[in-house]
Design a protein around this nucleic acid. Sequence first.
DNA 1: ACAAAAGTGTTGTTTCTACACCCATGC
DNA 2: GCATGGGTGTAGAAACAACACTTTTGT
Lengths: 255, 255
Amino acid sequence: MKLGFTSGLLACFKCNQFVMRYSNQTRLLVAVDCIILGFDGTDYKLLLIQRGFAPEKEKWSLMGGFLQPEETLDDAAQRILHQLTGLQHVYLEQMHSFSKPDRDPIERVVAVTYFALIDIEKYQQQISDSFHARWFAMNELPQLIFDHQEMVQMALNKLRYKAAFHPILFELLPEKFTLPQLQAMYEGLYDTKIDKRNFTRKVLSTKLLKKQNEKDKSNSKKGAFYYTLDEEQYKENFLSIHNFLPRYEIPAGWD
Amino acid sequence: MKLGFTSGLLACFKCNQFVMRYSNQTRLLVAVDCIILGFDGTDYKLLLIQRGFAPEKEKWSLMGGFLQPEETLDDAAQRILHQLTGLQHVYLEQMHSFSKPDRDPIERVVAVTYFALIDIEKYQQQISDSFHARWFAMNELPQLIFDHQEMVQMALNKLRYKAAFHPILFELLPEKFTLPQLQAMYEGLYDTKIDKRNFTRKVLSTKLLKKQNEKDKSNSKKGAFYYTLDEEQYKENFLSIHNFLPRYEIPAGWD
DNA sequence: ACAAAAGTGTTGTTTCTACACCCATGC
DNA sequence: GCATGGGTGTAGAAACAACACTTTTGT
């Protein structure tokens, strides 16, 4: 790598020592932007902030920040997510890097995107409230700055693809949830109706769920049994391939 | 994004004008590294170069280069791939960004990796031969610099996962190929034996292949019929989900 | 007693896997 | 004529999709 370029000694302003640097290369900013998704029982929601500074002041934006000298991209993503939501240990995955030279009008910034799935009920607005954050339903998104629209679209495609084979949507639910809730989440993501008998059978056949004795009566008189994840099984089979969707609902696409 | 940071006016050395920049942020190098894979009929091969400069001079490395001011990451990856192989329009996909602060001892470099699948027979060493490139069988890799080993491992996992559902391995084959060749490629990737009757049936059921009249007699007296991709179908069904493997060979993992 | 959502089984169809023999040819 | 790899078919098993009625309980 670094073809045809050499490294050499340069004076370092900070430490006043000579340090090695690659010669004749342009350095630039790296930002991390987070696509933070939630599900409120009916709709998928995206968490956005209102920028407090130029450019595009007041416009809506993904939560992001610049990569700092001592942190990895994963660190940065966690930090940013934590700053906004107060949450830690949530599902967070590196997605894609965006690099059009003029994507940020101020100066060149390469953006590495992460997508996060959080239990919307656990979201606590930070006391400072300095970000003016708001949840938007996916079909009521405002105009976003820069290429953030494209990032959101890609995240959604990726989620659709991945959730068809892997049990990641559970990350959007509270600890206890019902099968009808779970099914609504799948139906919402793929905008389709699923037969509940077949769905139940498939979901239970994964052995990922443990039935509770308690019922959720908020949506019906009869009440629906709560389930929780079997953490053992979940961790173990996190990566294995399941089949949550009927054959003809599986989306084309990849990643 | 760019939380709590402002943009402001700064003098620009080059153009001697005032330009906007984000304040108080560290800029750094972004590199693109390519994991270039081929298949020679028996083994998967990785294309490596021998670094001609410090650090790690003479050691083996993925082909890479720094992101230039006027290009996107995709541009850079194509440029780098072209520099080394002379090839254009090959399968090239952004994979993952690596960011440990000290991954490059000279200075901080964030590396965005791409993986490329090429027909090994089309590879032409560039006249200059300035990169000292060589194909290595995947099980005979030399020690690699920095975190390149990790990158290669991730690429291989990704390929295994993806090839189980999508027709990407064809990118490794010449225009005309036989079913035994194709099967050998799948068997090699998953280190398994596949029943040829079942395999043939599955592959042909995708309708992606067109049988030729000609035979390849280089591997048997009887000869095996050549097939080519049906470009129409291939483009159309590039993203759809197929099933090239027996159930129990499908790898855990994702992406 | 009735409305509204939860829960549950069966049957026909499709897809999958396992398995073994004949074919064509160059030597 | 025989050794080598290429090609093909079937039957049993598993997974899947389609489909409708009963249960519970709050009002």
